[in-house]
Design a protein around this nucleic acid. Structure first.
Lengths: 225, 225
DNA sequence: AGCTCGCCGAAAGGTTCCCGAAAGGTGGTC
DNA sequence: GACCACCTTTCGGGAACCTTTCGGCGAGCT
């Protein structure tokens, strides 16, 4: 079990670290909102303990940004107590639970257990287009429940096209998003992968899925306008 | 959205009923523990609001019995405030959230929304996938009641894969969660343990349990979508 | 202590198959 | 008809993964 503690008061942070490590948790600490965002994205945690009062970005903003970026780790907010409305706002910003300071140690542990027990938060939404369903978390694509056999690079390309559904995506944009930044090759690679994708998708769907806009890029049409 | 309110103070019960129905909830009321148990089993609710102070069976006992009977509807406990330890006990008895009286109306709604929004009801204490059952507390895995002989490290890996059921888990993520932070070895160790796991699981289940997604990680499919 | 047993991690060798380069073909566009 | 953008196919390298073996270390037992 790995926990991220975002807390600027050093005494509090140390006390949490000490106690949680004694319980067998692995603890990472961030002492401000930006650092918290960074560390949350950098490594996967089972729970995030997030103080509301932070210098710069406050807890609500951190929470909201994480959710917007598709990170669904359970979040326990530490609020400054008194303010009822703080609680409501915290839960609405996407937090899973809150705890009013000051709190006792067994209470904290009980909340953490409750959060990790429930098998973590909501899954990111599925992407759909042309009768295809792409699960970004499982890295799988299926058509009518039947899974398709795609390679990871093919899924990466398809995912990006589906996220931009209804918009033209240039080859350089695909290179930027689906390939390593160090990649030196030209746009020809994209053509090859689009071709391999088409060979599989068109056979499964029965009609063209990815359209070519000469001189512009590729496009998957939005079929739910 | 259907809510069950278990509350003996009539004024409180009426106020809750009135307010929740205005929000579009369908509200059932029980004024003691036994009746609450009965009504909870009788019809399916999206949330149960459970007062701690009840004549006869108190809220903790109701909660515990429901969980023992395999009912995993989200439960919001209303506590008499002050007592910290009450909260801890409440969460450990299987409640998902608590609220200290007195509370304001928007706070209650926020909590309800948070409870219904996340993972929705069915949340087994046991992890299941591919016909396997893993008990995180007992550290055991069984198939159709027959226990499998797995080592602790194997169980740790399997547990993490099952918690992320339906999602790809990278080798580095497994290293982070199932190995000590001080561990310096590479991802090869994961491959070895996955192999040992497969040798046991596939023979017990009769078909592949852990899938490999080349370049992404490992995956246990979610067979109950 | 001494022993056994079994889990764990390192390392090596084998296998699969994904990817990118290259080359030739096709169809629009001027 | 020439040029350009894109399509299609083939092929070898190599990364990613699988599988097995082996020695060490610790737990439990005598």
């Amino acid at each position: 079990m790995r926990v991220l503690v975002v807390e600027d008061e050093q005494a509090m942070a140390e006390s949490l670290t000490w106690g949680l490590e004694a319980e067998g948790y692995v603890v990472d600490v961030a002492d401000n909102g930006e650092d918290g965002l960074w560390k949350a994205r950098e490594t996967a945690h089972d729970v995030i303990i997030l103080d509301v009062m932070l210098p710069g970005l406050d807890g609500y903003q951190v929470c909201k940004q994480l959710r917007e970026q598709g990170l669904w780790t359970p979040i326990l907010m530490l609020t400054a107590m008194d303010e009822d409305l703080d609680h409501a706002e915290g839960l609405d910003s996407g937090a899973d639970d809150y705890l009013a300071k000051p709190f006792s140690y067994p209470v904290l542990l009980a909340h953490l257990r409750a959060l990790t027990r429930r098998g973590l938060g909501v899954r990111p939404a599925l992407l759909t287009a042309a009768g295809l369903t792409l699960d970004p978390a499982a890295r799988t694509v299926s058509r009518g429940g039947v899974p398709l056999e795609l390679t990871s690079r093919e899924i990466a390309v398809l995912e990006h096209l589906m996220r931009r559904k209804g918009q033209v995506v240039s080859k350089t944009e695909l290179l930027d998003h689906c390939w390593d930044t160090a990649f030196e090759g030209g746009p020809a690679v994209v053509e090859v992968h689009v071709h391999r994708l088409r060979r599989k998708l068109d056979r499964a769907v029965g009609m063209p899925v990815i359209l070519t806009l000469r001189g512009e890029g590729y496009l998957i049409q939005d079929d739910t306008p």
